[in-house]
């Protein structure tokens, strides 16, 4: 067991700040998984490996948009952060082809815009 101190907390905090890498985040709470988020996540992992992309794939909890699960948030430098909703296998491929490799957002499937860029 490691005994954390105040300094350790700060160190962990500093180490986990945004490192500027692109990422994909899949909502993996009960609502997401029920809608198929685990399959979406697995396909992302597989495809990223196959295409040797430099992008992080992460899990997160429920973003609150249960009506549009499975939802996937994507950050690619130069583009605004967006959340895609109702993502299926086809959607995963579209996101990878267009958004991540082609720097073009996928049409008709964005459910929330994050204002950061």
């Amino acid at each position: 067991m490691i005994k954390l101190t105040k300094n350790d907390l700060d160190k962990i905090k500093a180490a986990h700040q945004d490192d500027g890498r692109d990422w994909i985040k899949v909502g993996m709470s009960t609502c997401g998984i029920a809608a198929g988020a685990d399959k979406v996540y697995a396909l992302f992992v597989e495809e990223i490996k196959k295409r040797k992309l430099d992008i992080q794939i992460k899990k997160c909890g429920c973003q609150g948009m249960c009506y549009s699960e499975p939802s996937v948030e994507v950050r690619v430098k130069g583009l605004p952060d967006v959340i895609y909703g109702k993502v299926d296998k086809e959607g995963v491929i579209k996101i990878l082809d267009k958004h991540i490799c082609g720097n073009t957002l996928v049409k008709d499937s964005i459910y929330e815009l994050r204002t950061k860029r």
């Binding site: 905090k13 986990h16 992460k58 899990k59 997160c60 429920c62």
Partner: peptide
């Protein structure tokens, strides 16, 4: 919720956790 990985304590700490 929807920001951090719930299975990783470090991500919570990074958001001023604890």
């Amino acid at each position: 919720c929807g920001e951090i990985d719930p299975e990783n304590i470090d991500e919570y700490i990074a958001k001023d956790g604890y």
